[in-house]
């Protein structure tokens, strides 16, 4: 499921990120925000008055906002958290 389709306040973790859909600097910024395969995410708020707005989501312990086209590049899997996937590495 894409991050854009993830129901609000449902814990999930990142399965896959389509880096090619992001510009290099956007990809870098997302990585710096801790968004990477295996990270835990939770969609918190969908913005948008007068048009579709950005999505605020929790990545680890941080809340970040991104536009829908970027969130659509992130595939997530629901589950308790992403700790399992991340800890293997």
């Amino acid at each position: 499921m894409r991050l854009t389709d993830l129901p609000l306040r449902q814990p999930a973790y990142v399965d896959l990120i389509d880096w090619s859909a992001l510009s290099p600097s956007e990809g870098q910024r997302l990585r710096e925000f801790g968004l990477c395969e295996g990270a835990s995410v939770e969609a918190l708020h969908h913005g948008g008055f007068l048009g579709k707005g950005p999505i605020a989501c929790k990545v680890g312990r941080m809340t970040i906002a991104m536009r829908r086209n970027h969130a659509a590049a992130v595939t997530v899997r629901t589950g308790p958290d992403g700790a399992g996937a991340e800890n293997e590495a």
Partner: peptide, 19 residues
């Protein structure tokens, strides 16, 4: 302030800017 940016992003996107 960051919330104001979030709220305004959709509107700002219409004129080619970001929140």
């Amino acid at each position: 302030m960051a919330r104001a940016a979030f709220i305004m992003d959709a509107l700002m996107a219409r004129v080619g800017l970001s929140g």
